[in-house]
Simulated scan of single mutants.
Amino acid sequence: MIRTATPADVPVIHTLIRELAAYEKASEEARADEKQLREALFGERPAAFAHLAVDDESGEPVGFALWFLNFSTWRGVHGIYLEDLYVRPEARGGGHGRALLTELARICVERGYERLEWSVLNWNRPAIGFYESLGARPQDEWTVYRLTDGALAALGSGR
């Protein structure tokens, strides 16, 4: 079962984000706290949205998708950028990841969004195989760039 996250879900979403960061071998980079997540997801002007995959028997969350809107200047419409998709290892293979992506695709179709995009680490072969089995294709002609920390501060201050 997939459901839209509520403010009461912030602690479990935070836990799932920490689990994802550990899986991606980047625990030290996951610095967001529950207060920040609550504001981003449920504040006056939400910047992101989340859905939970819930185990049918226990009712416990076993995965999540956290996403936000992007915009295509070429197509002239919004799309969804999937920031995080994570299913706990013990729940993998149960259809939860597919169900989360199906829900986001449904939202795209319903709202007239023309793209559902995300990034995947090059070493994550199980995820890549899963995504390709759904019909997703890598965008090999693009390289993602990122400014953070000191480089971002230097550029932002005009240095």
Rank of each mutant, 00 (worst) to 15 (best):
K35E: 13
G43Y: 11
L41P: 03
A32D: 08
L66M: 11
T15Y: 07
W67V: 00
R75I: 06
T73P: 13
D149K: 12
D84N: 08
A30S: 12
L134R: 06
G43Q: 12
L37G: 07
I80E: 13
R106L: 03
R31M: 14
L100D: 01
R125D: 01
L37C: 09
R92S: 07
G135C: 01
S58E: 12
H96Q: 08
L104E: 01
F64W: 07
L104Y: 05
V87D: 01
F71Y: 15
A30H: 06
A136R: 00
I17K: 01
A154L: 10
L147N: 05
W67Y: 09
A21V: 10
L101Y: 00
L16E: 04
G76H: 11
A22T: 15
P89S: 02
I13W: 10
L82S: 08
Y145F: 13
L147C: 04
A65C: 10
S133F: 07
A91M: 03
T143Q: 15
Q139S: 13
V109P: 04
R115K: 02
H51N: 15
G95T: 02
D140R: 14
V62H: 06
L41Y: 11
L152G: 05
V144P: 10
N124L: 00
T73A: 11
A40H: 03
A47N: 07
G43C: 12
I17A: 03
A32H: 09
R125F: 00
A40W: 04
